[in-house]
Design a protein around this nucleic acid. Structure first.
Lengths: 310, 310
DNA sequence: GCGTTGTGATAGAATATTTCTATCAACCTG
DNA sequence: CAGGTTGATAGAAATATTCTATCACAACGC
C-alpha cells in the first residue's frame, strides 16, 4: 500500500509511467499494476490514460495530496527513529534561489558541527521550482523569498532582508561612489540574471520605479558569469549584498550599496508544514532560528552591510 | 506496512497480543510476526516483552504517535474518496459524557437529513475516556467539556454552556420555588452521578463553594436510575438543564433552575486535530458550528431555559 | 500509405510474503 | 507442582508481488 502511494508520487513527479517506475526501482508493468491496484482498492480511477499519461483525475489529485502527506509522515517517522538510535544521520536536500546560495553555508556549517553524520545536497533553483520540489517531497527544505509569492502550506523561518549592491570596476562611471541610487543605474551597462528569476524581477521593478526602464546589455542565469563580465572592467552588475559578502574583497572591483528603497524582500528557510517535523528538518529550523535571533549576526550582516572592498 | 501499524495501534488499545490480533482479524502469531517485522524494519525494539505484554519502549511510544497519524490519514483518505463517489457513507462513532447525550440528537438529526447513508454509533463515556478513545482512533468525535481538562491535540467546537436544575417533586421541600440557590440544596436528600464523572465533580465543587459540603444519599452512573428515584417523590437530584429539556414535562415533577453561579463549563464537539478532517467529521463540525451560531437556538435553549413542568 | 518510435497494458512464470495451524516455553497462581 | 495464560517459533499452505516478454495503440516522419 505504501509502495503504491510512492508510485503515485513518482508518477506525479515524472509524468511518465516508465520513468516513474525507474525512479522507484521497479519495472514499468509493476508500477502499472500497482497503480491499478490502488485504484481498485479505492474504487476510483486516479489516472487519465489513453496510450500515454494524461494527468490525474480530480479524485487522483486529492489522493495525491494525501499520498504526499502519508508518505512524508512515514519517512519522518523512520528518520526520527533512526535519530533516536544513531543520532542524526542521512541526507538533507536543500534548494536555494541563486542569491541565497551563499547563505546556505551559514546554516550547514554550524549544523555539521553538531551533527557530523548528516550529508547535504544543495541545489540552485528558482523560487517557484523550490516550492514545487518541496510539495513533491523532492527536497527537505528551501531558501527563498517569504513575502513575495504564495507560499502554500509551508513552515517559514525568516533569515534576512535582501539588499542590493552595484558591482563595478573602481575606475568605471559611479565606481568612486560610496552609495548610489536606483535612478543612477541607467548610466552604466548592466549584466543581470535572466528574467525567470524572482531576483531579476525584483530588480526590474526597482529600476522601473526609479527611472522607468531596465535594459540590461547582458543576461545570464549564472552569477559567476555575471561576475566574470564585471571583472573585465567594462560591465557592471546588481547583485544581492549576501553575494557581495561571499565574494569578499577583490582588487579593482567595488561593491557599492544601492539606497532608497533599501531592503524589500525577506529571505528565509521554508520547510514542509508537517506537524512534528522530520528530525533533520527540526535541527535545520533550530539553526535558522539561531541565525535570526542572533544580534551579533544581525549587526554584522544587516546593519553594517558594507564589507571592505579594495 | 500499513497493517503493521494497525497491529501496533491495536496492541496499544488492547494491551494484549491475543486480543489485539482478534481485533485486527488475524491470528496471534500473525500479529506477533508483524510487529517483529516492524521492529526490524525500523531497527528498534518497540514493545517490552517478557512472557506477557509489558508496554512500549520509548521508541515504541514515538512510533505509536506516528502510527496514529498515518493510519488516521489513510482512513481519512479512503473516506474522502468514497465520499466523492457515493456521497457521505459509513459509520460515525461518537462518544459523549452522559449529560451531553441528549445534545447528540441535535447534531445527528440534521446530519442524517443531509447524509442519509451515514450510520451512527453513540457511546456514553466519561470525559477522560472520551479523550483516550479519540487518541486511539476508536471514536471519530466526542462531546465533552472543553474548558476543564487538558484536551491535548484536538479540534474543538463549543456548543453550549452547561447549567443545572434541581429535579424534585412539586410537593417536596423547595418544590414550589421558581429558582433555588446552591446553598439551599443541603436541605433535600440528593441522588447524584458517581464521583468518577466530571459532572459530579463540578456539582461537588459548586455545593462546597456554597455551603461547605456534599453528601448525596444515593449515587449512580445512570441518569435513568436517578430519575426513577426522584419520581418516587422522596428524592431530589441535580441534573444538567439539557437533560431536563430532553425529559420534557412530567406530572408531579419539577425542574427548577439553580442560580448564582449560573453556567460555568462549556460543552462542545471534540474532533481529532487532523489537518484535512475526514469527510464525515467535516460534516459533523459544520453541523456543530451551525448550532453554535444559530441565534434561534441560543435564545430558545439557553436564555428561556425553563420548560413547562407539571 | 507505411514503417518507426514511444507509451502503457497484458499474460504467465518465478519469486516473496504473508498467514495459518500446531506446538512450545516461560511465567504466574493457588 | 498442576493448571491456566501469554507470547514465540516452525513449517506448510495460500496469496501477492515482481519480472520478462509481448502486444496494442497512437503520433510522427518520410
Amino acid at each position: 500500500m505504501f509502495d503504491k502511494l510512492e508510485f503515485l508520487l513518482a508518477l506525479a513527479r515524472e509524468q511518465h509511467f516508465g520513468r516513474a517506475a525507474e525512479s522507484c526501482g521497479v519495472t514499468q508493468p509493476t508500477l502499472s499494476a500497482g497503480l491499478k491496484q490502488l485504484e481498485q482498492s479505492l474504487g476510483v480511477l486516479l489516472v487519465n490514460r489513453g496510450s500515454r499519461f494524461q494527468g490525474f483525475t480530480p479524485e487522483g489529485q486529492r489522493v495525491l495530496e494525501w499520498a504526499r502527506r502519508i508518505v512524508g509522515d512515514t519517512r519522518a517517522m523512520r528518520q526520527e527513529v533512526s535519530a533516536l538510535r544513531h543520532g542524526l544521520t542521512g541526507r538533507l536536500r536543500i534548494a536555494a534561489i541563486p542569491t541565497a546560495l551563499t547563505t546556505v553555508a551559514a546554516l550547514t556549517t554550524p549544523y555539521r558541527a553538531k551533527h557530523p553524520d548528516v550529508q547535504f545536497t544543495v541545489l540552485s533553483r528558482t523560487s517557484t521550482q523550490i516550492l514545487t520540489l518541496l510539495e513533491n517531497l523532492e527536497i527537505d527544505a528551501g531558501l527563498t523569498y517569504l513575502d513575495n509569492e504564495p507560499l502554500g502550506r509551508v513552515n517559514a523561518v525568516p533569515l534576512y532582508r535582501e539588499t542590493y549592491r552595484l558591482l563595478t570596476a573602481a575606475d568605471a562611471p559611479l565606481g568612486n561612489r560610496d552609495q548610489v541610487s536606483w535612478a543612477e543605474l541607467s548610466q552604466v551597462p548592466l549584466c543581470l540574471l535572466t528574467p525567470d528569476t524572482q531576483t531579476r524581477r525584483i530588480i526590474d521593478g526597482l529600476l522601473r520605479g526609479a527611472n522607468g526602464g531596465c535594459h540590461p546589455t547582458l543576461e545570464s542565469d549564472s552569477m559567476i558569469l555575471l561576475f566574470a563580465h564585471v571583472r573585465t572592467g567594462r560591465w557592471a552588475s546588481i547583485i544581492p549584498a549576501k553575494i557581495a559578502e561571499a565574494l569578499g574583497p577583490i582588487d579593482t572591483i567595488r561593491t557599492i550599496p544601492i539606497v532608497e528603497p533599501d531592503a524589500i524582500h525577506t529571505i528565509g528557510l521554508v520547510l514542509p508544514a508537517r506537524e512534528p517535523m522530520t528530525a533533520l528538518n527540526a535541527a535545520l529550523a533550530a539553526e535558522a532560528r539561531r541565525i535570526t535571533t542572533s544580534p551579533a549576526h544581525d549587526a554584522r550582516r544587516a546593519t553594517f552591510g558594507t564589507i571592505a572592498v579594495n
